[in-house]
């Protein structure tokens, strides 16, 4: 099964330690990740091997329940989680990469890798969803920047 990768990068005008602080908190995804309605179960600071759960927007008024497992935590560099409950997307891997820039800001890359189930229907659905996914990644990173700016 082919693995698809969708990746977006943004420059955030906020320091990397603050970015890491917010991103590391599994209770706060509804505060900045586009499409997350509510975090229903969390374990605070992300810990390898532990899980957290969300309700995410799907199509129209529909929602889906997603559970993530933290796979890698490299402070102020990388976070890797795997998720289930994202049909038709399968084997979903979510990667956040960070790098401090010279201006005191943060370069952030938001990447998703996944395969597609449901046969040809799933492939069509994925192609329809992909532009929205890219937009959602950019919106999330902008939300993160705004949130940290507003926290002062």
């Amino acid at each position: 099964m082919t693995t698809i990768e969708v990746s977006e990068t943004a420059t955030l005008a906020v320091p990397i330690d603050r970015v890491w602080e917010v991103v590391s908190n599994t209770a706060r995804y509804a505060d900045w990740v586009h499409g997350v309605v509510e975090v229903t179960d969390d374990h605070g600071p992300a810990t390898v091997g532990r899980t957290y759960s969300e309700v995410n927007k799907s199509v129209g008024p529909l929602t889906m329940r997603t559970t993530w497992t933290v796979r890698e935590v490299d402070p102020q560099r990388t976070r890797v989680d795997t998720g289930v409950g994202l049909a038709p997307l399968q084997n979903f891997v979510n990667v956040f990469d960070f790098r401090a820039n010279r201006d005191g800001g943060t370069e952030m890359t938001y990447t998703a890798r996944y395969s597609v189930g449901l046969g040809p229907v799933g492939v069509i659905l994925e192609r329809l969803l992909r532009p929205g996914m890219r937009h959602g990644f950019q919106t999330s990173m902008r939300n993160l920047e705004d949130l940290i700016t507003a926290e002062g």
Binding site: D31, D146, L147, I148, A150, E151
Partner: peptide
């Protein structure tokens, strides 16, 4: 308080623009 402040200011920004964040 810091998280609540950010949530409120981001709501203000949805109405008044991003200058409301600061």
């Amino acid at each position: 308080p810091r998280e609540r402040r950010a949530a409120v200011l981001r709501s203000f920004a949805e109405v008044a623009g991003r200058n409301a964040l600061r």
